[in-house]
Simulated scan of single mutants.
Amino acid sequence: MNQDYGITANSKHYTCMIDLLGRAGRLDEAQNVIKNMPFEPDAATWGALLGASRIHGSTELGEKAAEMIFKMEPNNAGMYVLLSNLYAASGRWREVGKMRLKMRDTGIRKVPGYSWVEVQNKIHTFSVGDSIHPERDTIYAYLEELDLWMKRDGYVSATKLVLHDVEEEEKEHMLKYHSEKLAVAFGILKIPAGRPIRVMKNLRVCEDCHTVIKHISKIVGRLIILRDSNRFHHFSGGVCSCGDYW
């Protein structure tokens, strides 16, 4: 960059490099980049490392990255949730509980997740387990039908993501009615074939919903575009434009 283009790398360039190494699972190299940066890493830099730790299941490294983020942004609820997901995936329920207590004691609240879809110039908003939408029974019945098709297609519920130490069947039920799934199902039911389904979500899409929407795009043959808090996801034919890393 410096030699050929006269551009001096800043923290954002370094964060991008750490993100790329993290995508490739080269976590040691990502750490070395952080150590050798010509300036102190910021919360975004450590966040890239924490995201890579979540994807590749490196709890120890995730704890280290989260600790640095908490020092810089003690009220960042999203980082508490990411670290809790790491603990839950490895069955460390005591640590999950500690994260909840820490959030409660410091007054940090997780922002409720909402998803919305526009149908005939009207915005339809959904929350997890939505019980107030006038067509909820039809939406839930359609999701049950899709669930059967997805399991035949090889779908397995990502119950490791549920931050509660409960039975597997209950975990599956808790995951089944996330807001983005409800919005996608409603969009498919109401938006004519051949037109894309466009859904917005105020938070990052969870791993299970991401997998589900990939299966749905393949089963129903529709383009589904989901804009979460991090990026656009284009689902088509069972794959997503993000390459399963977000």
Results as ranks from 00 to 15, higher is better:
Q3K: 14
Q3P: 08
K12L: 07
D19R: 02
R23A: 05
A24D: 06
D28V: 11
Q31T: 15
I34Q: 03
N36Y: 01
M37S: 01
M37G: 03
E40G: 07
P41E: 05
A44E: 11
T45F: 06
A48S: 11
L50A: 01
A52E: 00
S53R: 08
I55Y: 03
H56T: 00
H56W: 00
G57W: 09
G57R: 04
G57V: 02
S58L: 10
G62I: 02
A66P: 09
M68Q: 11
M72R: 00
P74Q: 12
G78E: 12
G78H: 07
G78C: 10
Y80W: 05
Y87I: 05
R94V: 09
R94S: 13
E95R: 14
K98R: 14
M103A: 00
R104A: 14
T106H: 05
K110E: 11
K110D: 01
P112K: 07
S115R: 04
V117C: 06
V117H: 01
V119N: 05
I123K: 06
T125L: 12
F126Y: 00
F126T: 10
S131W: 08
H133V: 05
I139N: 04
Y140R: 15
E144G: 12
E145T: 11
E145R: 12
D147N: 15
D147L: 10
L148G: 09
Y155F: 07
S157W: 04
V162R: 06
V162K: 11
V162I: 13
L163A: 08
D165K: 03
V166S: 05
E167M: 11
E168M: 12
E168S: 12
E169M: 13
K171H: 08
K171G: 08
E172H: 04
Y177R: 04
H178P: 09
S179Y: 00
S179H: 11
K181H: 03
K181R: 12
A183G: 09
V184L: 08
A185E: 04
P192M: 02
G194Q: 10
P196V: 04
P196M: 01
V199M: 07
M200S: 14
L203I: 13
L203Y: 03
L203R: 11
R204K: 14
E207T: 00
D208W: 04
H210M: 02
I213C: 10
K214A: 14
K218N: 12
G221S: 03
R222P: 00
L223P: 03
N230H: 13
H234C: 07
H234L: 15
S236Q: 11
S236P: 05
G238R: 07
V239T: 15
C240V: 03
G243D: 02
